[in-house]
């Protein structure tokens, strides 16, 4: 029988997958190789979400660079450059100068970990700030060289254990203090230098937008818990970052032209031990040893010092303090 075959129906327009329909800009995509519960991976995604697509990212060597770009794949959906450990700020300076020459307003974001910022890339960063490049530098601060196996950095807090600051007979973890990088940045008289934490996404996003709105060099220090390096359960990353802020060890502040601008007030300061006891890198501070007790008190004093120095103690409950800023309601965050 000669039967006329009906014409093949036109192919339906390709359906967008749920992932493609997410109501947010996806600057850093899934499939990256960060560890479980990585604070830095989350922080970088949140930064890009707030920054939007019209950006160029330069990246220092470090975890972020490694886990997002195992050749031949990339998790980045924005132009992204990596050259060396020490020169993220230098590359960003050049990209910014080129953008300026082209008359293009694309924003340049330089990224690095604390190793690439506090120590190895510090001179390039200082130069970028001194030359007043219109770049936002974001430092993901996980307080040690995690990518190479947890060596101490200038950012490692006092008394923390790393592979190069082991506790023992001589020392209780790192001997030196955490470098006060934010003050050093602010001393460059830049318009905006701020700290924030991945545990307070609303604060982080606001500060990224604020910094990008400012013409000139801006700097953001993002506290980013590292389950592997800090020795805590992967599921507790956000909680531990929150405790760091709530105890005063990581002050969340804004410095504008060197002066203290806003701070995130602490509703009820927590004892530092609540923060320390969840992490293996401070485990030796809970040994039955008079030095352990001394170092716990030392860290508490450092936290109290931060609270006094930055006036972190709130004046009663505030909707934007540590306890209020995350308040949720049905259908999304309160603000």
């Amino acid at each position: 029988m000669n039967k006329i075959e009906p014409a093949a129906p036109e192919a339906p327009p390709q359906e967008l997958s749920p992932r493609d329909r997410q109501p947010r800009w996806r600057g850093l995509e899934a499939g990256h190789r960060a560890c479980q519960g990585c604070g830095e991976a989350l922080a970088a995604r949140l930064v890009l979400e707030a920054a939007g697509p019209d950006v160029v990212v330069t990246n220092a060597t470090g975890c972020l660079e490694v886990f997002t770009t195992p050749w031949p794949q990339s998790a980045w959906r924005v132009p992204w450059l990596h050259s060396l450990f020490e020169n993220s700020a230098a590359i960003a300076s050049g990209v910014e100068a080129a953008m300026k020459a082209k008359g293009q307003r694309t924003k340049v974001i330089a990224m690095g970990g604390d190793g690439g910022t506090f120590d190895i890339g510090f001179q390039a960063l200082s130069g970028m700030l001194e030359r007043m490049h219109n770049v936002l530098y974001v430092c993901y601060d996980n307080e040690a060289y995690m990518n190479t196996g947890i060596q101490r950095s200038g950012s490692t807090p006092h008394a923390a254990m790393t592979t190069t600051s082991p506790p023992g007979k001589e020392r209780m973890g790192k001997r030196h203090m955490k470098k006060d990088l934010l003050s050093i940045i602010a001393a460059h008289h830049v318009p905006y230098a701020a700290s924030t934490s991945v545990s307070f996404p609303a604060d982080l996003r606001r500060k990224v937008r604020r910094a990008l709105d400012i013409e000139g060099p801006t700097f953001l220090l993002v506290h980013s818990p590292c389950p592997l390096g800090w020795g805590h359960d992967a599921s507790r990353s956000i909680e531990i970052g929150r405790l760091a802020v709530e105890c005063g060890l990581f002050p969340v502040v804004e410095l504008e032209r060197g002066e203290l601008g806003g701070v995130m007030p602490i509703r009820e300061p927590r004892p530092v031990t609540e923060y320390l006891k969840l992490q293996n890198r401070f485990r030796h501070l809970f040994a039955d040893d008079h030095r352990a007790r001394e170092e716990r008190e030392h860290l508490q004093a450092l936290a109290d010092h931060n609270i006094d120095k930055y006036h972190l103690r709130g004046d009663g409950a505030d909707p934007l303090d540590t306890a209020g800023i995350d308040t949720v309601r049905r259908g999304g965050p309160l603000r």
Partner: peptide, 8 residues
């Protein structure tokens, strides 16, 4: 590599 391919 084209961007976004980490989804693979």
């Amino acid at each position: 590599a084209l961007p976004g391919t980490s989804l693979n």
